[in-house]
Design a protein around this nucleic acid. Structure first.
Length: 817
RNA sequence: GGACGAUUGGCUCAGUUGGUUAGAGCGUCUCGUUUACACCGAGAAGGUCGUAGGUUCGAAUCCUACAUCGUCCACCA
């Protein structure tokens, strides 16, 4: 034992060194031939087009990765892929903005090329950052959601669902973004509070004798009057009984509109008379569906008024609103204006208010299987448990089938063709996948129904969730010749904000495609927030990049901060905590240095029987043994934060501040037996402790392992060495130790008393102005306990007392004279 | 309007089935360079555990209201 640690630990140098080493040695490679249990992780493929990664991203990936490292050390065969989500709307919009693309002046092919180029660039940047953070990803498993395999599996999944009757195409009103010019799913929406004016506008009830009684409706969207298809009242509302079943006349258009009833109409709201249009909100659509109302769609895809808008044709809907208000004002039909605050649905990607539009779209039927999906949710092990309610709430609130088609350039094509003559839908064979029906015709380009050769490919592409919901299938190479055996995967890791999307849709796919759950466990993380508790974003100027923190403090320190809050809780950014992390590294380095300096004449093959161990050594080894079980238990339950606290507390308080001080006397003294016992113990504790810290602080622990612990024949990285079980770590003789801890409870209790005595000694010395290293005449300890006698030499050394007396009669635990 | 989470010393957070004087780190104050570490050590101050009730021998912990913050959902005529 002659190696010596340098005086200082250089995190930056060391981290780079070991990251390269891990890569070169293939430490994190998944082993296809291993017989060990597989632990597979479905981890979020970030959008390469999102803002550069901030500390919040780093936090959630790190939290998961700590758990993964733990499982790897337990000997499991780790399948830890990384993906990049580079298909779909976000990428398309990113490229449009970056290159200021005019879609009318570029071909689809050229545009897709640009998207692919950006995704490659972005992917590289991200990969570099993940490596710097020390994520133990097997990069040979890298996938992107636009690559051929992902396309193939997404399309295969689609065709499977189609054949199972879960997919249908319908001319249906859908949420429509006039900005992005595409249909949207319910999950693409966000709320926005906005001030608006509510107008009370006069219609007239129809009467055989000409114009009847006034019918005042309240609306925030007067521009939809030409689209009005019905008025509704509550069936119990006495004011309107005589009009029910009759008609009303709309202003300006003079359209004759039926008056109907619905329980959902609130009598107190406005005048109790509701205008239903094509379509202003989801309420309109529900009534339209339920009562088979007329359709009077006055807006086109671009948000302009069409011919059904009469005199307003051709105007932008916003301008039309101004015009119609002017007209109504002139006719004196606006009876009242109220300022209100209401919530709009906006598109979460572009923040524009959504409209409704009718167009043919593809849907996955899910409303009829809500119960089955809820049961699938029950089958998963949720960490933390309460997150499950987010999913249940979402499923309960579902009102729409899943709209999976998008009218965009970049994305995975919907794999089908239409016969232009008879309308037959033609699907590709599995060996044709992946296919782009916009570019290619089917293998057999003849309509099977009418033999027509007039065949045209679908132009729409898939919603991005349609692909990302297949990540477990992509990872498993579902129905490929090299299909892996990792499905269902062990764990899905993700943030709570995408429970209703990524998690939910993946559950849908697994249930429908494979009649299974997609993973066994769920690990749902909170957000890393800005210092003041706000969400991190560039616009709020509170954005701290992971890159800058890695540069300043290193990966281990950033990882230390990342486990500062328990799983599922939000964590505020704190540079102080990163400094604390750095300090822990320094302390760990120095403590190990100290141990090594004192092991120069120590042969680590030596085994010491319990009877030859000093009492203080038995105590710290018992604490260590307890620590192993506690840490293991917490990590098994995804509680990295609790594990961190346990480790830190043991290491800093019990081991460094107290135990080491207690045994220094023996290390420097003449008692050879006592010294050997201390050496044995110091080595055992440090060798075990750095393994326990390894998942959280992978770099410094690797450095220490390589310099200090690793011997020929042992694993060439700490991260594939064995997780401690009891004290049997990598030393054959330690297998004998379990019998040591038969009376552990008593030993630990004695330890508490011991710490109390030490604290009291220090306190009294401080009160009496005696320096810590300064000696004094007499120390009296009031105790009749056996272990105090056994430990008295250590106590005498620690306190620097000239004389130590243990008195059974003395009631005070410590007296210093 | 419904749901979930949070509310603990100046700051950031622990507190796992209710049990003796509620913990840690940072910050503050005092002392100390002892041969692992001044990126250190020792000591101290600092909390009516959001508010009000209730259950209990006993509540930060369980129950009921309420308040504030965050998030999701619903409403959004």
């Amino acid at each position: 034992m002659t190696k010596e640690l340098p005086k200082n630990y250089n995190a930056k140098e060391s981290e780079k060194k070991w990251q390269d080493f891990w890569e070169k040695e293939g430490i994190y490679k998944f082993d296809d031939n291993s017989k060990n249990p597989v632990f597979s992780i479905d981890t979020p493929p970030p959008y390469i087009s999102s803002d550069s990664l901030h500390t919040g991203h780093a936090m959630s990936y790190t939290q998961a990765e700590i758990i993964i490292r733990y499982h790897r050390m337990k000997g499991e065969n780790i399948f830890y892929p990384m993906g990049f989500d580079d298909n779909g709307l976000p990428t398309e919009r990113f490229v449009e903005r970056k290159y200021k693309v005019d879609k009318s002046k570029i071909t689809r092919k050229e545009f897709v090329e640009l998207c692919l180029r950006e995704t490659r660039e972005g992917g590289k940047k991200y990969e570099e950052l993940w490596r710097k953070l020390g994520l133990s990803v097997d990069w040979s498993l890298l996938y992107s959601t636009i690559n051929p395999l992902s396309q193939k599996i997404s399309q295969r999944s689609f065709i499977d669902l189609y054949k199972k009757g879960r997919i249908y195409r319908e001319e249906a009103p859908t949420f429509w973004c006039t900005q992005c010019q595409t249909a949207l799913a319910q999950a693409d929406l966000e709320d926005k509070e906005e001030k608006s004016l509510m107008y009370d506008i006069e219609f007239k009830f129809d009467s055989p004798t000409g114009e009847g009684d006034p019918a005042i409706i309240s609306t925030t969207r007067p521009e939809l009057i030409p689209a009005c298809v019905a008025l509704y009242v509550n069936p119990k509302d006495e004011r309107y009984q005589k009009y029910i079943g009759g008609f009303a006349i709309a202003p300006i258009t003079k359209d004759r509109i039926p008056v109907k009833t619905s329980e959902t109409v609130e009598m107190e709201k406005g005048t109790g008379l509701m205008m239903v249009c094509t379509w202003g909100d989801t309420e309109d659509i529900e009534k339209w569906k339920a009562d088979k109302l007329d359709t009077k769609l006055i807006i086109d895809k671009n948000g302009r008024v069409n011919e059904k808008g009469g005199k307003y044709e051709g105007m932008k809907i916003k301008n039309m609103r101004e015009e119609i208000l002017k007209d109504l004002e002139e006719l004196k039909l606006i009876k009242n204006k109220t300022e209100i605050e209401h919530t709009l649905n906006i598109h979460e990607r572009c923040k524009q208010p959504v409209d409704f539009f009718v167009s043919p779209q593809w849907f996955v039927k899910i409303l009829d299987i809500k119960n089955e999906l809820r049961k699938r949710g029950d089958e998963l092990n949720w960490h933390p448990k309460f997150m499950k309610i987010h999913l249940d709430n979402w499923i309960d609130g579902l009102k729409w089938d899943w709209c999976i088609s998008r009218d965009r350039f970049f994305g995975i094509p919907l794999p089908l063709w239409y016969c232009q003559d008879c309308g037959e839908i033609i699907l590709p064979e599995d060996d044709e996948l992946p296919v782009d029906p916009r570019e290619t015709l089917p293998k057999n380009p003849i309509c099977p129904k009418c033999q027509s050769k007039n065949i045209k490919g679908e132009l729409q592409v898939m919603d991005t969730w349609m692909t990302s919901s297949t990540t477990p299938l992509i990872n498993n190479h579902w129905k490929e010749t090299d299909e892996k055996n990792i499905y269902p995967m062990s764990v899905r890791v993700q943030g709570f904000e995408i429970i209703r999307t990524w998690l939910f849709y993946t559950l849908v796919k697994a249930h429908l495609n494979t009649d299974s759950i997609p993973w066994k466990d769920l690990m749902i993380s909170g957000w890393g927030l800005a210092k003041n508790g706000e969400k991190m974003s560039k616009s709020l100027n509170n954005f701290v990049t992971a890159e800058s923190m890695l540069e300043k403090y290193g990966a281990d320190a950033l990882r230390f901060w990342s486990c500062g809050a328990t799983l599922g809780m939000n964590l505020r950014f704190s540079e102080d905590d990163m400094r604390s992390g750095q300090k822990l590294l320094t302390k760990l380095w120095n403590a190990t240095r100290f141990v090594m300096m004192n092991l120069e004449d120590y042969d680590r093959q030596i085994f010491i029987n319990r009877n030859d161990l000093c009492e203080a050594d038995v105590w710290i080894l018992s604490e260590l043994e307890q620590l192993i079980w506690d840490t293991t238990y917490q990590l098994d339950n995804y509680e990295f934060a609790r594990a961190k606290i346990l480790l830190e507390h043991f290491f800093w308080i019990k081991f460094a501040d107290n135990y080491i001080e207690l045994v220094k006397g023996r290390l420097y003294g003449e008692d050879k037996k006592g010294k050997l016992s201390a050496q044995f113990t110091l080595y055992s504790v440090i060798a075990t402790l750095i393994k326990l810290f390894a998942p959280i602080l992978p770099h410094i622990t690797e450095e220490l392992y390589q310099l200090f612990i690793k011997e020929p024949g042992q694993p060439n990285s700490i991260h594939i060495s064995s997780w401690p079980k009891g004290l049997d770590f990598s030393h054959p003789t330690y297998m004998k130790t379990p019998e040591w801890f038969k009376n552990k409870k008593e030993v630990l209790k004695n330890g508490e008393k011991l710490l109390e005595i030490i604290a009291e000694i220090r306190k009294q010395k401080a009160e009496k102005n005696i320096k810590l290293g300064e000696s004094f005449k007499k120390l009296t300890i009031g105790s009749n306990e056996e272990f105090i006698k056994k430990i008295q030499e250590d106590l005498k050394n620690l306190s620097h007392a000239g004389e130590l007396i243990i008195s059974e009669k003395e009631k005070k635990i410590v007296i210093i004279e």
